[in-house]
């Protein structure tokens, strides 16, 4: 088959703009349906089981109850959430603030130390063994000491969250420096880079994707630890709300808090991913589905 014929076929086979738009819209609808199929099915089954009265409603309240409670938690309009009515925003702001404060100090310090460990054998020998041992201590094991040192309040919470955020940031940024392609390093040397240029224009940009992966993990851990910290060390936040509602047997509020934490964690991850994709367009293009 001649190439001219092939091109002609392509030309004839090209759908007009309207048809293409329609096809794209239907594809978007299909993927939207797929996204919601599983959680939707879970909610429906849960609702039916809860409403059927097979077990006490208070143990596992159906989604409709949780929606009503969540509405009151946020708005304070119906009194459905009782003593917690209208407290959602305060708790959410407290948790979010702690997460970001901990993420900032832990992520920043971790990234800095990780880069230095990757760059310098001396720094590696000084700090890496300590990091490797300490990262195996679960952050929850630090709770007693942090309460003794900082007392009850924001400080131990932010300390614990930062500690959790610290380790993935260290490990990934070290890896980012180490995985620099040898050929790129040689090419940069050949071009005549001095040490400063090698660091700023070759090593650090090459390490950025790994650094961002570390920060993404740090953000995930920060949301795990804020709940732990708020159960044990503070009297506000979604973790505190969850634990307090548990004491008062308000499982609807417990589940509403869990849902809030899940959504906020998801949104925080989207923020990190958004920043990463803006900063590292090249890396997105290189990845499998770019």
């Amino acid at each position: 088959m001649g190439s001219a014929a092939t091109f002609a076929e392509d030309e004839a086979g090209r759908p007009d703009a309207a048809a293409r738009r329609k096809r794209r819209a239907s594809r978007r609808l299909t993927s939207l349906l797929l996204y919601f199929a599983f959680p939707g099915a879970v909610l429906i089954v849960w609702q039916i089981l809860g409403a059927a009265g097979l077990y006490r409603r208070a143990i596992l309240p159906p989604p409709s109850d949780i929606a009503l409670v969540l509405f009151d938690l946020v708005s304070g309009l119906t009194g459905e959430a009782g003593r917690y009515s209208g407290t959602w925003l305060d708790h959410t702001l407290s948790s979010t603030w702690r997460v970001f404060a901990g993420f900032l100090w832990g992520g920043a310090l971790g990234t800095l130390l990780g880069l230095l460990i990757g760059l310098s054998r001396v720094v590696e020998k000084l700090f890496d063994p300590t990091v490797q041992v300490l990262r195996n201590v679960p952050v929850t094991a630090w709770v007693p000491l942090s309460l003794i040192f900082f007392g009850i309040g924001n400080q131990p919470a932010i300390f614990l969250i930062g500690l959790g955020a610290f380790f993935p940031a260290v490990l990934n940024s070290t890896h980012g420096v180490r995985q620099l392609n040898r050929t790129l390093f040689k090419a940069a040397q050949m071009m005549g880079t001095n040490q400063r240029e090698m660091l700023a224009r070759v090593i650090l940009p090459a390490a950025m994707p790994a650094v961002m992966t570390g920060l993404r993990l740090s953000m995930g851990i920060a949301w795990v630890l804020v709940v732990v910290a708020e159960i044990l060390a503070v009297r506000s936040g979604l973790g505190y709300l969850l634990n307090d509602a548990y004491q008062f047997y308000r499982n609807d509020v417990v589940i509403a808090s869990m849902l809030s934490i899940g959504i906020l964690g998801f949104l925080s991850d989207r923020v990190v991913v958004f920043v990463r994709d803006r900063m590292l367009e090249w890396n997105r293009l290189e990845s499998y589905d770019g």
């Binding site: 050929t183 790129l184 040689k186 090419a187 070759v202 950025m208 090249w282 890396n283 290189e286």
Partner: peptide
């Protein structure tokens, strides 16, 4: 001494 490598050494970023 400019070097052209087998795997083109372009900075991906």
């Amino acid at each position: 001494r400019g070097v052209v490598f087998q795997q083109s050494a372009l900075f991906p970023w």
